[in-house]
Design a protein around this nucleic acid. Structure first.
Lengths: 341, 341
DNA sequence: AAATTTCTGATTTACGTACATCAGAAATCG
DNA sequence: CGATTTCTGATGTACGTAAATCAGAAATTT
């Protein structure tokens, strides 16, 4: 049988009440007694039964997800996954709330975060916009002993406890290698479509992409980045323009959202171009385009995994517990026509 | 507040004891009363607090992992992950035991499975060898109301509750597409190294690979499959032979284990061949070969995920609960040099 | 209608932990 | 040394559920 608090009390020669005081870091225990109890805990290998403890405490985890408003498919999916998690709240003792903030708007994000500081909250997950004032606001939350995880996009140099998202530099490099290898030595131009260089994930993807392109595939020339603001119509216009202007384009890398517009432009360009295309985020649109051959590969981060991971990490952090690192690593999925889920 | 058993009793106008009898499917409740209680449960939206129930029951989950003996890296890794899970037993209320059986040996596997039938066990996970007698043994376990999940390799037509592994046909197709695209239109021979055609995962990978090769890359010719029995030395011999015999080989697909030997053979062949190589399973050997360029892509299934998923599914099945399907889907990881974990 | 058999209610104990209260012991202070 | 102050022990209740017991009510059989 697993040792219990009774066993600690017996082993340490103290009462249950004292064991309880030590375990829950309550005052009223002399240093020597405390050490005696702690030794006993180690000796008999006591592990707190978290389920029983939570039951006794009537513990619930009020969690807040701060998500950008916006109508691209990826954020829609993320919202949906958080709502999905809400339906499991009863089982998981969570109480999840979504706070929406305008996208790419640091002051709004800061205001939302600061508003949370005085609430009684077990953790915050946010899609970070990478700005110093956001970092400061996150650090204030951490100072207030509120667990914080960044979601999808990380926050440079902040004290956040965890990042639930992919390694975007690696994602960019991977996209470059796929594109380069798929083009098999052909020479020509590559155009890159991004959402905004204001978010860290997009910047990092570009950085990784450009670096690997330069070192491994010098025969491919990178055109200036197109910024589509994750908007299908803007993206469509930019890409259509580029394709009609430059007949040497043989590859496209879309590292942001708004791929609906990109796909429209690609289909319109049609047979005129023999294009190899790598994009990010699996949505109904990119899935269809992958299947019909308009797109050659989709890099994806699984929003469901990110949300579930964020919740697990926040709960564990709130309890001062560890997590299974390998389980919480968010992997970059590479989808070809053949391994779609 | 979440409704409790007391609320059910009040709502149904019966006593706690009766509610308990209904909830735990104990005899001694008239049909009409039972239906009244069940209606009340639905009406007030009662959800059983599994943690409290397990606490009261003193529930533990004795699980058995039936794993093939053998010294290839992948099975080593799988063993290690199961042992890792054992260290979390206290927290997860599991009691995990590993039963080793000889690899590719249906009778031994059957004997091991049948021995488990009379034990008091909450679930069995096994790496299946695909044979009718094994299927029958699994079905006997299922008949004995013991939850069963297949791990890594599935079992045709059996009643197992779940399969914790990748879609191997899709894996084979994906390998074919990668190899075909990386070869960029070149013409030549492809050699395939398998472990044994007796296990379903290898057969399926080959099937997917061959089908896609035939339909999409007719300029590539598939050589007869080499069976390396997942043994490094045998693999080395077979591949070295093939490479020296056939100078038209431009691609290699290794769909089993024992890649240490393959890598030795590839390095020995050296500059003589310009080879594109896709292999399965990320190990220290394949990782190093990927980084030094000997291998171009590694397809991988995350053994840790498989083990953790199997445990979650077994526990949930034992409790008659559902699982989050998306969470339990084991994904095929594609690793290039650039996205290694 | 009486005798059974089958259901149901009331109550208690338990699981492992948290938390509160109060009395009494030990340490510290003046 | 007595008077405080600080610790510690003993005890009880609670969390939500499981499981057992036993008495009594209801249904069924004779």
């Amino acid at each position: 049988m697993r040792p219990t608090v009774f066993d600690i009390a017996a082993a340490a020669g103290v009462s249950l009440a004292t064991v309880d005081r030590v375990l829950n870091q309550r005052p009223g225990v002399r240093l020597v007694t405390r050490e005696k109890v702690e030794a006993a805990i180690r000796d008999i290998g006591y592990i707190r039964d978290v389920a029983a403890a939570n039951l006794a405490k009537g513990r619930v985890y009020p969690l807040v997800f701060v998500l950008p408003a916006g109508d691209n498919s990826f954020m829609h999916g993320l919202h949906a996954e958080v709502r999905q998690a809400m339906t499991r709240s009863a089982l998981e003792r969570t109480e999840i709330r979504i706070v929406e903030v305008p996208a790419f708007d640091p002051p709004a994000l800061v205001a939302a975060l600061d508003a949370l500081r005085d609430e009684d909250i077990a953790g915050v997950a946010l899609v970070a916009t990478d700005a110093p004032e956001v970092r400061a606001a996150v650090d204030r939350l951490v100072d207030a002993r509120i667990p914080v995880v960044t979601l999808v996009s990380d926050l440079t140099g902040s004290a956040r406890h965890h990042y639930a998202g992919v390694d975007n530099i690696a994602a960019g490099r991977t996209a470059a290698r796929l594109l380069g290898r798929f083009l098999g030595g052909r020479k020509g131009d590559i155009t890159v479509l991004a959402g905004s260089m204001l978010v860290r994930d997009h910047r990092e993807r570009l950085q990784g992409f450009a670096a690997l392109m330069a070192s491994e595939f010098p025969q491919l020339r990178l055109l200036p980045v197109l910024e589509g603001r994750d908007d299908p119509d803007i993206a469509n216009g930019l890409v259509s323009d580029a394709l009609s202007r430059d007949k040497d384009i043989i590859g496209v890398y879309s590292l942001g959202a708004g791929n609906r517009g990109l796909i429209r432009a690609l289909k319109a360009a049609g047979q005129g171009h023999d294009l190899t295309v790598v994009v990010h985020e699996l949505t109904e649109h990119t899935r269809a385009a992958l299947l019909d051959g308009t797109i050659d590969a989709v890099l994806n981060q699984d929003a469901g995994h990110e949300v579930r991971s964020a919740i697990r990490v926040l709960k564990a952090t709130a309890d001062g517990q560890g997590v299974i690192a390998a389980q919480e690593r968010i992997r970059l999925d590479i989808f070809l026509q053949d391994n779609l889920p």
